[in-house]
Design a protein around this nucleic acid. Structure first.
Lengths: 256, 256
DNA sequence: GGTGGTCGGTTCATTATTTGAACTGTTATT
DNA sequence: AATAACAGTTCAAATAATGAACCGACCACC
C-alpha cells in the first residue's frame, strides 16, 4: 500500500461513534507500527487533517478536511441542495431518511434525519452502504455506468441476512424493477427487520451520483406505505437532480 | 516533505475558483513530476479524496472528503451551530459575514454570507486568513493559547497594505483592545478599502476555536456602524460558543 | 495533411524515504 | 513501590518513491 493510502486509512478509522483515538489505538487498529502511525499523524496534522487534543493527547479529524469538503461543496452543492428535501421527506414519512453519495465502490452516507420514534432505524453519517444489499445500492446501480455495475457483480458478495441478494441475476432483476418503477425496494437485505425504499439522484449525464432513501422497521410498515414512500422518494430524488443540474448549468455558463 | 504532505498539497491546489485541474496543470503547480503527481492522484482517488471527470479527465476533490468532514462535524458541530447565526447577522448588517475555524497556522473560512449589494466584500469558502492582518485573526489571537500567539508574532509578518500591523507590540495592543471590548476592529489591514469587525468563538476551555466577522467597504461604513456591528458580532460569537459548549457537555455526558 | 505542441498516462533503474525493534520518559492503576 | 499502558524517539535496514524518457492521442496552425 502506498504511504498516502496508509495515511488515509488512518483517517478512516475515525467514525461518528469513535471520533477521537489515541496513538496506540490507531496503531493497533491500522496494523501499522507505532512509529509509522505517529509519523503519518504528524504529516496529517501539519495540514490540518487531524488535530490533537491538548489534554488527552488523542487525535481527531481536523479542520483542513472541512475546508476541502466545503470547496468541493461549492462546486458541487450536493448537500446544500439535497438536505432541505431530505428534511421534508423525513417530516412527511416520519421515518429515517438518509442521503448518500457514491465514492470509490460503495455509497457514503452524507446526511441523515431520524424520526422521533424510539423504535427507528439508526444510521450514522459516514456509514458505507454496500451496493448489492441495500435499497440505496440497487437504486444507484439501476442508473450507474456499466463498468460500475460490472465491478459490483463480479467477485463474491457478502450475505448480511437470509434476504440479501447475492446472485448477479437476481440483483440485475431488482435493478430493472427499480429502473422501471423509479425507486427500489429492499426487504431486510442488510439488516433483519428493516425495509427501505430508495431512488437515484442523477447528474446531467443521466448517471446516478447518489441516492435518497427511507428506512423503517418492517413491523410497522404496510405495503401501501411502501408504495407511497416509493413515490415520495422518487419525487424527492427527481427534484434534487433537477436543482443540481440547474446549478451545474449555471456554473458551466459562468466558465464559458 | 513526506509523501503524505505532497499528496495533501495536491489537494490544496483546488479552490472555489479552480475546482477542477488536469494532470499536467497539477504537476506544474505542485512542482512534482508528472509521474509522481499521477501516482499520488491515483492513491487519493483510491480512497475517494479526488475523483476524475470521465469526459475531461480533469481531477476534482472527491466524496471521501465530504464523508470525513461530516464525521468531524458530527462530533464538533461548528458549522451546524454557527451557520444560522451567521445568516441572522448577515441579514441584520446587510454586509458580508464570514465564519472561520483555526487550522494549522491561520484561520480557514468555512462559511460566508454575502449581501445583495453589487459593491461588497467578496470572500471565498476555503480562503485562508492570516492572523496578524485581519479582524478575525486579531479576535482569534486575543483568546488563543500563548504558544499560538508566540508562533504568530515570531518571524517576519507580511504587510498586505500600508495599514497592516507588522510590529508585535502593535499587534499585542490590538489584541488587548479586542479582549477588553469583546470584538476586534481592523481597518484595511488585508485589503485597501475594507474594514472589518470580528469576535472569537470559544471552546469550553475558554480558548478560541474560530471567529465570526463582518467585512464591509470602508466607503459606506460609519464609526457608529462599526460600534453597532461590533456588539452584534460579539453577541453572535457568544451565542455560538454557548450552544457549542452546551452540545459538548451533552456529548461528554453521553460518553460517561 | 503534415508538424509541433500539449495532453494523459506508463516504464524502470536509481535514489531517497519509510519502516520497526528497541528505546526513553510519563502517567495512571494496583 | 511495582506494573502496565501510554506518547513519543532513534537509526540501520528495507522498501517505496522518483523522474527522465517514452507512448499514443488530440488539437491548432501553417
Amino acid at each position: 500500500m502506498s504511504t498516502v493510502g496508509k495515511a488515509i486509512s488512518l483517517l478512516e478509522l475515525f467514525s461518528v461513534d469513535e471520533p477521537e483515538l489515541g496513538l496506540s489505538d490507531l496503531a493497533r487498529r491500522s496494523g501499522f507500527d507505532k512509529a509509522t502511525t505517529r509519523r503519518l499523524l504528524v504529516a496529517l496534522a501539519g495540514h490540518g487533517f487531524v488535530e490533537q487534543d491538548i489534554g488527552t493527547r488523542h487525535y481527531r479529524l481536523g479542520a483542513g478536511l472541512s475546508r476541502l469538503a466545503r470547496i468541493r461543496e461549492a462546486r458541487f452543492p450536493f448537500l446544500q441542495t439535497a438536505v432541505p428535501l431530505v428534511r421534508d421527506l423525513a417530516a412527511s414519512t416520519a421515518e429515517t431518511v438518509h442521503l448518500s453519495e457514491f465514492g470509490v465502490d460503495s455509497l457514503v452516507t452524507v446526511h441523515v434525519e431520524h424520526p422521533a420514534w424510539a423504535n427507528r432505524v439508526n444510521i450514522d453519517i459516514g456509514q458505507l452502504l454496500p451496493l448489492h444489499s441495500t435499497a440505496s445500492g440497487i437504486a444507484y446501480l439501476a442508473f450507474a455506468r456499466d463498468e460500475t455495475v460490472k465491478a459490483c457483480l463480479t467477485g463474491s458478495l457478502d450475505a448480511f441476512t437470509a434476504h440479501t441478494l447475492i446472485e448477479p441475476a437476481a440483483i440485475s432483476r431488482s435493478m430493472s424493477e427499480a429502473r422501471e418503477r423509479g425507486y427500489s425496494i429492499y426487504d431486510q437485505g442488510y439488516e433483519e427487520g428493516v425495509i427501505s425504499v430508495a431512488a437515484a439522484i442523477r447528474g446531467a449525464d443521466g448517471f446516478a451520483l447518489g441516492t435518497i432513501a427511507v428506512a423503517a422497521p418492517k413491523a410497522r410498515t404496510t405495503a401501501a406505505a411502501i408504495a407511497e414512500r416509493g413515490l415520495a422518494v422518487r419525487e424527492a430524488a427527481r427534484e434534487i437532480s433537477m436543482r443540481l443540474n440547474g446549478e451545474n448549468l449555471q456554473i458551466l455558463r459562468r466558465q464559458a
